[in-house]
Design a protein around this nucleic acid. Structure first.
Length: 588
RNA sequence: GCGCCCGUAGCUCAACUGGAUAGAGCAACGGCCUUCUAAGCCGUAGGUUGUGAGUUCGAUUCUCGCCGGGCGCGCCA
């Protein structure tokens, strides 16, 4: 059995524990890799954990544990330190063995069975298809994609899903906006474009496509379009009354459009939807973000699931009618207030279709469901979990990760990111400026719950100083060395690794052995940034070694050992970067 | 006002689910290219972890109170 050092050491400690404190034999063994190399290769706080139960001095317990520790060739030195830590220094052969393990496992090194093949669904991005993706969506995309790969690597069966909001008012507004621009293109300029419509240039280009494909088929007289609309209030006014009037003006325009266009309304609607959807899709694909399922909100209505869902809640006694609307008693599940699922006008709320969507997720048999939402949706968690509980499902299966906002700065000024106003930086623009690799890496370089200040000027002007290049550079250097070495890569597994004996080489080997632990910890915490930081550390240690020692030396045996180490580093960089969706060029 | 998230070096961020002397990058300063890629390396400097208490062997981490910032509190999506 080729156990790794950590597993072996854990087993040794368990034996010692069993004889020192049989009553506490189930105490979990925590082994950490100390930051300070002077503290050895592994350290455990086991004695301190036992201190209270045994009512003894931790250092004394540590001494007794050491006395009972079975003899092993693995441990070169074990000593009590500090308040009661036990520090272990391992045999160098056990460290360099990682090189061979990496080379033999190749792409599979770091994979684990932590997830046990369980089915997990990760839903992310799910932006309304009403305009280009912006930098905020980019963060969700990068995080979700990296997390999905990470979970897959750690042994889960992952389904990546995008929830398409193709059923609501926002889509109607987009269709209307497109149509109004289309009318403008046909010389109908007497209709003021509503300020709360979609202003972006992409709307105009969709209108042009419509004109090219359908000529004047959708043209209607301006008077009919504006019939019975309340009109647009003075732009300077932002009182509630004015706001309400703008919204009802928009709704009246939509109603008129539907009436005037009849079946053609669906064609315009569909055109806008498919156009935006395919635009977003190709944007994400170029960004290396793939989805297995594109789930339509509209389908939830078409199959009657929303209605069935509401009925289920009603039968379970969690619905009541007030002011003509149907309310869900989410306060029964800890929410601040009850929520409407069906409005007075009979239209279901977004919440209703979201309940149905989650019911559908559960019915598809996932063992675990992860929703990745923007932080502005945090108030939404209680009601969704409440509804799940009301449907008799286990709310613990659902995990919501809130990704904090990416706030964009340009010229030291906060840039707006509203899709409707049209003043936003798109993900595509960002990728063009900064590059996909730097983008993916930059996004995932911080915890999801950290606010992200994205300084566009900095990202553009200093893109060469982005940490991603640091890691890619290490990879390129190794490729270059291996080209000059020119040997057969397969022969590297036979290298005499005992020749790797300087501290840098041993530290680098240990670092490689740590990779699987990093993967598991990151997967547990849903924190792909830990992988990114690990890769930075690995690259740093490699660069230091590279500058200190030469690999292509005269001594054939030493050369082979060093090239093997470099090849193993390269492999781990590839595995880690691949997970984060970042490429590894062979030269830079 | 209530709820969620956050506060760590001048700036951007880490810190292995409570561990040892809190670490990186950028910016600043000083060194290293006739030998494998200088997008690199080595060194110097930079901190009362917002603040005050509590919990214990031990707190950046957990609890509470303040201070400061972000977001949310619709029959919007």
């Amino acid at each position: 059995m080729a156990h790794d050092s950590k597993t072996q050491l854990t087993a040794l400690l368990q034996q010692a524990l069993a004889s020192v404190a049989p009553a506490a034999a189930d105490t979990p063994i925590q082994l950490e890799r100390p930051r300070d190399p002077g503290h050895g290769d592994f350290a455990t706080n086991l004695a301190m954990q036992l201190a209270r139960a045994l009512k003894k001095n931790p250092r004394e317990i540590a001494q007794r544990l050491l006395a009972e520790l079975p003899v092993s060739s693995l441990v070169v030195k074990a000593e009590v330190a500090g308040a009661g830590f036990i520090n272990f220094t391992l045999d160098s052969g056990s460290k360099t063995r990682a090189v061979k393990t990496v080379l033999e496992a190749g792409e599979a090194f770091g994979r684990s069975r932590l997830g046990g093949g369980q089915k997990v669904q990760v839903e992310f991005v799910s932006a309304n298809p009403t305009g280009p993706l912006h930098v905020g969506h980019g963060r969700g995309a990068a995080y979700g994609a990296s997390l999905s790969s990470l979970l897959a690597y750690a042994g889960w069966d992952v389904t990546r899903e995008y929830y398409v909001n193709d059923a609501g008012r926002q889509m109607d507004i987009l269709a209307l906006s497109t149509w109004l621009r289309y009318l403008e293109l046909h010389g109908i300029c007497s209709i003021d474009f509503p300020p709360n419509g979609y202003q972006g240039d992409y709307v105009r280009s969709m209108a042009e496509q419509l004109k090219t494909a359908r000529a004047d088929r959708y043209v209607r007289p301006a008077e009919a379009v504006l019939a019975a609309t309340p009109g647009i209030p003075d732009p300077a006014r932002d009182d509630p009354e004015a706001k309400a009037q703008r919204e009802s003006h928009l709704d009246a325009l939509i109603a008129n459009a539907k009436a005037l266009l009849g079946e053609d309304w669906h064609a315009v609607h569909q055109h806008a939807l498919t156009q935006q959807l395919s635009d977003g899709r190709s944007d994400l694909e170029e960004f290396g973000v793939h989805f297995d399922v594109w789930f339509s909100e509209k389908s939830l209505f078409d199959t009657g699931l929303v209605a069935r869902c509401v009925e289920k809640l009603e039968n379970a006694g969690y619905l009541y009618v007030q002011d003509g609307a149907k309310w869900f008693k989410s306060t029964a599940f800890g929410d601040e207030k009850d929520r409407v699922v069906q409005r007075e006008n009979g239209i279901y709320t977004y919440f209703a279709s979201d309940i149905a969507y989650h019911l559908n997720k559960y019915e598809r048999g996932f063992d675990r469901i992860i929703d990745i939402w923007g932080a502005d949706h945090h108030g939404y968690i209680a009601r969704v979990k409440g509804a799940i509980q009301a449907l008799g499902l286990d709310p613990e299966k659902l995990q919501v990760v809130l990704v904090q906002f990416a706030v964009l700065y340009r010229n030291g000024q906060k840039a707006s990111m509203s899709t409707r106003s049209g003043e936003f930086v798109t993900l595509r623009e960002l990728r063009d400026e900064v590059g996909n690799d730097a983008c993916r890496f930059f996004y995932v370089l911080r915890k999801a719950d950290q606010h992200l200040d994205f300084d566009l000027d900095l990202a553009k002007s200093q893109s060469n100083e982005n940490p991603v290049y640091y890691i890619q550079y290490a990879h390129a250097r190794i490729c270059s060395v291996m080209n000059q070495w020119g040997g057969d890569a397969a022969s590297l597994t036979d290298a005499r690794l005992a020749r790797l004996d300087n501290p840098r080489e041993l530290a680098l080997s240990s670092r490689l052995a740590e990779f699987p632990e990093v993967i598991e910890a990151a997967a547990r915490d849903l924190a792909p940034h830990q992988v990114a930081f690990y890769l930075k550390d690995l690259a740093a240690e490699f660069h230091a070694w590279y500058n200190a020692e030469r690999m292509l030396v005269e001594d054939q045996e030493l050369k082979l050992a060093r090239v093997a180490l470099a090849a193993a580093v390269r492999q781990v960089i590839r595995n880690g970067m691949g997970m984060l969706g970042v490429s590894c060029p062979a030269s830079m």
